[in-house]
Design a protein around this nucleic acid. Structure first.
Lengths: 197, 197, 197, 197
DNA sequence: CATGAATGAGGCTTCATTCAT
DNA sequence: AATGAATGAAGCCTCATTCAT
């Protein structure tokens, strides 16, 4: 009996948590889409309507806008950082750097406006910068160091500079037909420039 | 009598025209300063207050925000385009390209947010893109062509790509201590990348 | 079997009743504390969090805010009314009146905002006024009548007036450093004024 | 000509200022009425609708709620303070004190909820407290000192305490049929209490 | 032409209350 | 009976834009 009751209790709690998680997920998905379309400053309503939820729900789970942005990026930032490890052992230093930057481009370029958020001075975005600093910067630094050690690149571009420069190059300019393809090409040129630093 | 009246009329008109021009100038100067400080989306009041004029005056001369931005950039865009000519004859092709890009960086980097405006899909900014296309693109194209002909660069980066890529690299990222100095360094790396395209 | 089932049923019911009472008690205690700190309009969450319960539980037991306020005050109102009886026989009339008012001050002054609720025109607070009328007013009236009969006070201040006047004097004015000590002193002056009415 | 132009200029400015002043006045009148009916926390819309103006106009002239409250009270506070002077010379000390308090009651009692604002700890209301401190407190202090000197009152109730105590006694309690008449009577009792302090 | 007061749409955010589990 | 996630109305405030003077 006691066991059964406890199970029921657990079941209930888990169920609620599952529903809430579904909503959180829906909000993140919706936010990702809306961010890509209208930028990270899009009205909250646009996001909640797309998710089929009330604004209150958004504010419950993501009190500040930065929390939502961070929520959208978190996993991808971590995955990207982890990927660097694999690439270091799989490829020659400069090739690994190139390959990893390509992956980083996917992360940043496919989210219109996130690059913008990344650049905000608003203290609310601290978490975002921290995450980048903690996870992405060491990854980039390691790849740069490898390539340096192998004599494949010169100059003194830091990991931080690389990340933000590539982030900037990944913003689309719709009015000038400057899109993802152009972003990629420009990043390639930039990475090429590291060799002749 | 008639003559006198006409003179009076003319005098007034001329006076007004002169006054109006003074105001337009004051607004452009003020806008340039405010854009640099608070970005191109700064409240209209910030600009008119700094110019010591009323908001109505701003709207009379620059009905849409894009008109004001274009007004601010116009002269500098033209000057920058004209400078290319001088550089072509004065320096070796790649050196000329580098030097001109440096000048272009001054144009874009010193106006926080203008780069952003340059990238907006808002149809209101058409005029801006047109100006860039008409004046800057030919200048950049000529310099690129020279360098290509001299075998100093390879690859197929277009003038338009060069302009927008450099424009993107010129945005500051205050939260990451990524400022004008970094902008310049990153542009250098990018231009270096043109050689190894 | 039947008996066993009934017993189980009763057991559960009793258990629930006991738990529910515990919750009601926890909510009243928490509400008392929160009312004292943040006033009677404090967010429901503040109360439930402090009680370690869900908001739903609060609404089950106290559907309207007034129900909660009444719940908090009920016992104290009754105790205060009962105290009047003891005081009447223990002390000289005016002294008894003073002593009782002091006790009433404790009731009202230590619950920031309750005085305010007491004064609301909101029909939801009817119950509160009723309780005051039914329990406190007769007590105050008796003490006033005694003092009158003894010739220790004059004037025609009614029991109701006394109660509400003292209630008003018991509100703190934080911005003016006007707190409980001042409340007490002002009430003393007021009660002194009854003599010279 | 120059003179005529300047006059026109002045006329225009004055005209605009006059219109704006009319609006400011309308807002203050409306606010006074709304404050009296719904308290000083009434929605901004209620005030602007009653004044026939847009919310923006309210915020232009009274950016913070406290500014509006202060605007409503300012003149009356000053007038009340000035009246004290006349009373000191016209009447016997205690009589003057009584008369002045009666006038103060008119100031506070006829504005439901202003008393509440007077008591807020919100830093936005500093201006209000300051005004009371600067204007009303000296007036009350002088009257109290006179009465003390004349031996007509005893005790050590300060000017500040008098002001806030009377302010508190002037709040109506609609649900208990405790209105302006009762406010006045209770204040009388309180002032009577100063004699027997 | 210049002015700046007025407008009000639009976005943000909080919190009382409901209700599925 | 308890829970707390979800809801959305309601109020706040800003600012682009208009328009009477």
């Amino acid at each position: 009996m006691t066991t059964a009751e406890q199970r029921t209790g657990e079941g209930r709690q888990r169920r609620r948590r599952v529903d809430a998680e579904r909503n959180v997920h829906a909000l993140l998905e919706s936010a990702k889409a809306v961010f890509a379309r209208s930028g990270v400053d899009a009205p909250a309503r646009e996001i909640t309507d797309a998710a089929g939820l009330g604004v209150g729900t958004l504010y419950r789970h993501f009190p500040r806008r930065a929390d939502l942005i961070l929520g959208v990026l978190q996993h991808e930032i971590d995955a990207c950082a982890d990927a660097a490890l694999a690439m270091r052992s799989d490829e020659a230093p400069y090739a690994a750097l190139r390959a990893w930057v390509e992956q980083y481009v996917e992360l940043v370029a496919t989210k219109r406006g996130l690059a913008g958020a990344l650049h905000s001075a608003d203290p609310a975005f601290e978490g975002l910068h921290d995450r980048v600093t903690e996870r992405l910067e060491p990854a980039a630094a390691a790849l740069l160091a490898d390539a340096h050690a192998a004599g494949e690149i010169t100059g003194d571009v830091s990991a931080r500079e690389l990340l933000y420069a590539v982030g900037l190059l990944c913003q689309p300019v719709p009015a000038a037909d400057f899109g993802l393809a152009e972003n990629r090409r420009m990043v390639e040129v930039f990475v090429g420039g590291l060799r002749s630093g």
